[in-house]
């Protein structure tokens, strides 16, 4: 049974079908990429799964339970962690505290104990930010903020990570490091990762199955090489006549 499954999922925005009957499944412990041109519905699909939007039709299942239309905090508590396209970290807090906040969401929030001692350091080491634990998050570079947000998802012990363009705004070196990081997470088998991405080099580095979306529907699913060679996908990305 897949960890995540959507059945005929739909979302209409005033007559425009942003997501138009998507059936999608994701096995536990796998890494999968979602690609498609702007407006193809992949971010809307993330919003429907994570509870940011309520679907117009269809159903979403996670780990055997129906989660259709649940509020974001309810979806998160079940173990789905979402990374936003523009890195969302807590600028006013130190790096260590940024990790403590999602950990408390799972472990319970104390009102009367000093917060000083808490910091899930393992997640920080995984993303290579262990040396910056006491720095305010506001002082990190753009790429480091992206990694910090991924570490925050790990600290929350989410089982499914939805990563929306995790390499947006990164340098080539940073992008390669991110591919290695995400590949490592999935290979360890602790988490399942669904990643939205535009960067073709990054997709090649990830080397995972790819699903292509267009106009709110799933167009193709296959490995990187097959997708790269697919005539219809090439036309979608590069236009006719190429």
């Amino acid at each position: 049974m897949p960890l995540l499954r959507t059945v005929d999922l739909r979302k209409d925005f005033g007559g425009l079908a942003a997501v138009d009957g998507v059936d999608f499944g994701l096995e536990a412990g796998t890494l999968h990429a979602l690609v498609g041109p702007n407006g193809c519905g992949k971010s809307t699909l993330f919003n429907l799964i994570s509870g940011a939007l309520a679907p117009s039709g269809g159903r979403v299942f996670f780990d055997g339970d129906e989660i259709t239309g649940l509020a974001p905090h309810d979806v998160a508590r079940r173990g789905i962690g979402r990374k936003f396209q523009v890195p969302a970290v807590f600028d006013a807090l130190s790096v260590a505290r940024n990790l403590a906040v999602p950990a408390w969401a799972r472990d319970g929030l104390a009102f009367w104990r000093a917060a000083d001692t808490d910091a899930p350091m393992a997640a920080l080491e995984q993303v290579g930010l262990a040396g910056k634990r006491d720095l305010p998050a506001a002082e990190l570079s753009h790429g480091e903020r992206q990694w910090l947000e991924i570490a925050m998802l790990l600290a929350s012990r989410a089982r499914l990570l939805l990563l929306d363009e995790p390499t947006a705004g990164m340098t080539v070196t940073e992008t390669a490091a991110t591919a290695e990081l995400i590949g490592g997470l999935a290979a360890a088998g602790d988490v399942t990762v669904l990643v939205i991405e535009h960067d073709m080099a990054f997709l090649r580095d990830l080397g995972c199955p790819v699903t292509v979306m267009a106009k709110g529907r799933i167009l193709r699913t296959g490995d990187y090489a097959a997708i790269r060679a697919d005539a219809e996908v090439r036309e979608l990305y590069f236009g006719r006549g190429r």
Binding site: P102, F111, W112
Partner: peptide, 25 residues
């Protein structure tokens, strides 16, 4: 003491980015 507790830290986080907090549960 309340503000120095985890609850207080979460309040600071909420002031900065309530959406991020909601998506952590």
């Amino acid at each position: 003491r309340l503000l120095a507790s985890p609850f207080g830290v979460v309040l600071t986080a909420m002031h900065g980015d309530p959406r991020r907090l909601a998506f952590f549960g």
